[in-house]
Amino acid sequence: MHFRTELIVPESPDKITLQTPVLTLGSCFAEVIGTKLVENKIPTLSNPFGTLFNPLSIVKLLHHALEGTPPDERLYVEHQGVWFHYDFHSSLWAASREELRERLVTTLAAVQQWLSRTEVLIITLGTAFVYRHLESGQWVANCHKTPSSAFQRKLLQTEQIVAAFDGFFTKLPTSLKAIFTVSPVRHTRDTLPLNAVSKSLLRVACHELSERGHAYFPAYELLLDDLRDYRFYKSDLIHPNEQAEDYIFERFANAYFTKELQKFIQEWQKIRQALGHRPLYPNTASHRQFLENLLQKLQKIAIDVDVNPELATVSEQLASL
C-alpha cells in the first residue's frame, strides 16, 4: 500500500564530481542548493547577484558579467539613505552610489571569472512576471520599495523566456551544462491563481529548454507532488522547511553526483557533526583523543578539498588543552 506518489528522478549522464565548478543563480531556491553545495565542499559560487526571480533579469546580469559591461547607470536608486540597483537584489547595497557601483562591478567581475571555468550552471526560475521601470524603459529585478506607479507589470510568454536563454547560451562553450529548476516557493502576492499561471509558463519554458539539450531537475514537483504536505513547509506555509530542502537536495545528489562524491559527502557529514560536537568533559584525555582523531580525518581529506579553516579550529582546540 502506498500513501504518496513518489517521483522518480532519473540519473543524469553528466555527473558532478568533487572538483566540478558550479554556479547557481535565480530565486531563493538557487541559494538553498548553492549553500548545500558549498557546505559539502563542492567548488560553488552561490547566487552572487542575490535573489533574482524572473528569467529576463537573470539573463541580463549574465550578459553583463560575460561581456564585462557595467551596471545600467539609470537604475541606481536611493531609499532612506541606502543605495540599491534595480537589476540586483537588496542584499547588494551601499551607503553611497559610488560605493555600490564599485561593489556591483566587483561582483560582475567575479561572476565573469567564474563563468570562464564553470562546468555546471544551475538556474532556478521563480516567476514569469516582470516589471518595466517606466522612466528608463528597462525590465528590472527588484522594485526596492519604489511605488508601483513607477513600473508596468507584464507576464512573460514562454517564447520570450526561451529566446532570452538561447541568446545567452550561444556565447558559452557547449561543454557547459545547464540545469534548470522551477522554484517550489509560491508567489502568493500574485494571488494563487496567477501564481499557477506564472509557474506553468516557467515549467513549459524549462521543457522547451530541455528539448534543446539542457537539463531539468524537478524541485517544483518534488515538493508539490511528491511531499505534498504542509508539514514540509515553514511557518509561512510558502517556503519549504529544512526537512524538505534536505530531501530535495538528496534527490538532486542521487541524480547528478558521482558515486565517489556521494560517498565523500557521507563521510564529510560525519566530520561536520564531529566538528560541532560539544564535549561533556573538556580538558580530558578522552577529549584530546577525540580531537586528534578528528584532526587525522581532516588531514586525510585535505588532499582533495580545502579544509584549512576546520584544521585551524581543531589545532587551536588541541593547543588550548
Rank of each mutant, 00 (worst) to 15 (best):
G26S: 05
V140T: 01
V307Y: 12
V82R: 12
P240H: 08
I265E: 13
S148C: 10
E260F: 12
H239K: 13
F53G: 14
P240E: 11
E211T: 06
P240W: 08
L66H: 06
L66Y: 02
T181R: 07
A219L: 14
S96T: 11
K171H: 05
P184I: 08
D72H: 12
P282W: 00
L75S: 02
D190S: 11
E78T: 03
N293S: 03
Y220R: 02
N293Q: 04
P43W: 02
R189E: 06
L294H: 00
P10F: 01
S27A: 11
V38G: 13
D226R: 08
L294S: 01
F257V: 05
S46Y: 00
A255D: 06
T258G: 08
Q262K: 15
T313Y: 13
V111G: 15
P147C: 06
E31Q: 15
R189W: 03
T20H: 01
L23C: 07
H214Y: 08
N254K: 05
A312R: 10
L227E: 05
E316K: 15
H277Q: 05
A312S: 10
I123G: 10
D87K: 02
A253V: 03
E316H: 13
I122W: 14
L295D: 01
H214I: 03
W114D: 09
L37C: 04
